[in-house]
Simulated assay, not measured.
Amino acid sequence: MRKIKDVLRLKLDAKLSHQQIADALGLSKGVVTKYAGLAATAGLDWFTVQGMDEAALERRLMVGSQKARDYVQPDYGRMHRELGRKGMTLMLLWEEHRADFAHCQTYAYSQFCENYRRFAKQLKRSMRQVHRAGEKLFIDFAGPTIALTDGGRAHIYVASLGASSYTYACATPRET
């Protein structure tokens, strides 16, 4: 829930520090600094803010950030999946996007690519594998051998079911 009006009341009327406001409202100091900076840029004082509701105040403060919203934002998640298909390129996706939103303002190709690269950079590198129950069993000998009390060495055999990750392990004298 937005607390813009409370932040500005404590800043402009009560003259509290950013840290005091953050502690009082349970916000971060950075959020308080952001709202105070936006109010200063918009030239707002407490008398003006007092008569506004939360929605009107937010619209007034966010005037500078509206420029980026004028452009139709592509679905970068869908684009990322589409790029996995054979023969698909960013140029083709950009042309599709422009055709779909011909009546709206879209990014130029260079900005479209830059925004996609920024999106792709924040993705976590992972590979999800889905295993059906009882379909796969992963087996291997784990790590180095273990010394036994009789002077011999034991090899650790490990087996794990794919779906449940149920694991079985035992020591064996050999890897055969």
Rank of each mutant, 00 (worst) to 15 (best):
9 R>P: 02
85 R>A: 11
131 H>L: 08
156 I>P: 02
116 Y>I: 01
29 K>R: 10
77 G>K: 13
129 Q>R: 14
23 D>M: 08
159 A>S: 11
98 R>K: 08
172 T>N: 04
42 A>C: 10
47 F>C: 09
116 Y>C: 03
135 E>Y: 11
103 H>Y: 06
37 G>F: 02
113 C>Q: 12
29 K>V: 03
99 A>Q: 13
52 M>L: 15
34 K>E: 12
100 D>F: 11
127 M>C: 12
108 A>D: 15
33 T>N: 01
124 K>A: 09
129 Q>G: 07
21 I>H: 01
74 P>T: 08
72 V>M: 13
130 V>Y: 05
166 Y>H: 08
155 H>G: 02
87 G>R: 14
133 A>G: 09
48 T>Y: 04
59 R>A: 14
46 W>R: 08
76 Y>H: 12
108 A>T: 09
2 R>T: 15
39 A>H: 03
102 A>P: 09
47 F>P: 13
144 P>C: 09
105 Q>I: 06
29 K>F: 04
172 T>H: 05
28 S>C: 11
29 K>S: 08
21 I>Q: 04
66 Q>L: 14
27 L>Y: 00
137 L>D: 05
73 Q>I: 12
57 L>N: 00
149 T>D: 03
113 C>E: 12
72 V>S: 09
116 Y>V: 00
59 R>T: 11
143 G>R: 04
63 V>A: 14
59 R>M: 11
94 W>Y: 12
38 L>E: 05
108 A>G: 15
144 P>I: 05
68 A>M: 10
33 T>S: 05
87 G>Q: 07
155 H>E: 11
23 D>Y: 07
35 Y>S: 04
78 R>H: 05
94 W>T: 03
16 L>A: 11
152 G>D: 10
119 F>G: 06
165 S>A: 07
100 D>R: 15
102 A>I: 09
62 M>W: 11
85 R>W: 05
96 E>V: 10
